[in-house]
Nucleic acid binder design. Structure first.
Lengths: 224, 224
DNA sequence: TGTACATCAGTGAACGCGCGTTCACTGATGTAC
DNA sequence: TGTACATCAGTGAACGCGCGTTCACTGATGTAC
C-alpha cells in the first residue's frame, strides 16, 4: 500500500532509499513535479500553484518543466490520470483482502469497509484531500479531458459499490426498500464529505468515523 | 426562502424588480460584488477570481472595489460571513417548519430532512457548490479569520444535529449503539459530498438522494 | 432657511511583480550499421 | 569496434500580459447649528 500513498512519506527523509538493498530509485523529475503539484493543488488550488514553485522544489529550470508537460493544463491531466489509477488500485486491494477469507458478499464487504476505515485512521498525517474534489471546485479552470477523467473516477466508485450491493441484496433482502445506486454513491459521498470536515475542523477521526457509519448503515439494512 | 438563495435568480432578468410594488430595490454594488464573487469562486476558485472581472460585471472601477474591501482577503472574509449567516437562517427555517405541527423530536426531524431534500431537489438550477468546501481546498490562500468562520459554520451544523439527535435518542433508544456526534456530522458530510458528486457527474438527483438516505438511516436507527 | 462640514460611493492613473509560454540551443546516453 | 545519428532531459534568456494595490482626488447626499 505504501507506494500508492506517496504522501505517507511526507517529512520522512529519503535516507533509507540509499541504504536498502532493493530501494526504489529516486523518482524522476517528472514524478517529483507531480508529487509537489498534487500537494500544492490540495492546499491552495490549481490556479495558485505556480510552475515556478514546482521547479524550485524539484531543482530544474522552467524550460525543464515544459519538456515534461506541454502546458499547465497538461500537468492537470497527468495529475488526474495518476490519481484515478492509484485510487482504483487501493480499492481493488482493500476489497480483495476483505473477500480473501470470506466468500459471503456481505461480510467480505463489511471487512473491506473496516479495512478502509483503518487505513484512513492510520494515515501518518491527516488526509491531504481529494484531487477530484479540488478540481470540481475549479471546473472552469480545467479542460474537458480532466473533467472526463474525474467523472470516470467517480463512476468507477459507483459501479464497484453497486455491483457489490446488488450481490448482497440478492442474498440478503434489505430490511427497508433502498435505492441501490444511491447507496453505492453514498460511499464516495461520505469519503468526499468526510475529507472536507476533517480538513475544516482539523479533526482526523471524522473521516474513518463516517466510513464506519456507512458500514453500520449497510449492516443495519442487510444483516438481519 | 427566496432571498436566502440569491443564485435562485441567476439568469432571471431583474425586470420584475421594477414592476412589483414592494420590489426589493436593486442590491448595492457591494452586494453585487459579493454575488458575482461567490459564483466565480465556486466555479474556478478564489485565486482565479480576479477583482478585474468582478468590477467589470458590476460596472465600477477598480478603486471602487477597494472602497468596499480593504484588500482581496477582506472580500473572502465578507463572502464567508454572509455564507455562514444565510446557511444558519435556512436550517433554522427548515427545522422550525418540520417541528411546527409535530412535537415529537424524531418525526419533526424526519419532516425537516424531507423539506431539506425537497429544497435541494427543487433548486431552479443545479446546486452551485459550497463556499466552505471551496475554501477548505484553498486553505493556504485564505487568512485565519476565514478559516475560523468556516470551522464555526461546520460546528454550528454539528451542534444543531447533535442536540436534536440527543433528544431523539432519549425518547427512542437506538437499535444499534451509535456515536451521536459522528451521526450529527454525517449530515454535513453527506451534503458536502453530495454536492461534489452532483457537480462531478452533473446529476442533480444525487444531493437530495443522499439527504434522504440520511433520513432512512436515522429512521432505521431510532424508529422501531 | 442657509451655510459649513462630513460622509458615502466612488474615479483615474500609475506601479511593479510574477505568471505561463516560447525559442534556440546543449551535453549525456542509447542505437544502427 | 568505431562512427553517425537520434533521443532524452534538460538550460538560458526573453516576452508580454494581467494581477492586486496605492494615491490623490471628486461629486452627490446627509447632518449640525
Amino acid at each position: 500500500m505504501r507506494q500508492l500513498y506517496p504522501w505517507y512519506r511526507r517529512g520522512v527523509a529519503n535516507a533509507n532509499d540509499q541504504v536498502s538493498a532493493e530501494s526504489p530509485k529516486r523518482p524522476s523529475a517528472r514524478e517529483r513535479l507531480l508529487d509537489l503539484a498534487e500537494a500544492a493543488v490540495l492546499q491552495k488550488g490549481f490556479a495558485a500553484t505556480s510552475i515556478e514553485e514546482l521547479i524550485a522544489g524539484v531543482g530544474i529550470t522552467k524550460s525543464g518543466f515544459f519538456y515534461h508537460f506541454k502546458d499547465k493544463g497538461d500537468l492537470a491531466v497527468a495529475l488526474m490520470q495518476r490519481y484515478v489509477e492509484r485510487d482504483e488500485q487501493i480499492l481493488d486491494e482493500l476489497f480483495r483482502r476483505g473477500d480473501e477469507l470470506n466468500e459471503d458478499p456481505l461480510h467480505g464487504f463489511l471487512v473491506g469497509l473496516k479495512l478502509f476505515a483503518d487505513l484512513m485512521a492510520n494515515l501518518p498525517e491527516a488526509h491531504p484531500g481529494c484531487l477530484a474534489a479540488s478540481f470540481c471546485y475549479q471546473s472552469q479552470l480545467i479542460n474537458r479531458e480532466v473533467r472526463a477523467l474525474n467523472a470516470e473516477g467517480v463512476l468507477a466508485w459507483r459501479n464497484r459499490f453497486r455491483e457489490r450491493l446488488e450481490k448482497i441484496s440478492e442474498r440478503y433482502p434489505p430490511r427497508t426498500p433502498v435505492d441501490i445506486e444511491a447507496l453505492a454513491d453514498m460511499a464516495a459521498t461520505l469519503v468526499e464529505g468526510g475529507i472536507i470536515l476533517t480538513k475544516i475542523l482539523d479533526e482526523r477521526r471524522i473521516l474513518p468515523q463516517q466510513v464506519l457509519l456507512y458500514r453500520d448503515f449497510v449492516r443495519l439494512l442487510f444483516a438481519n
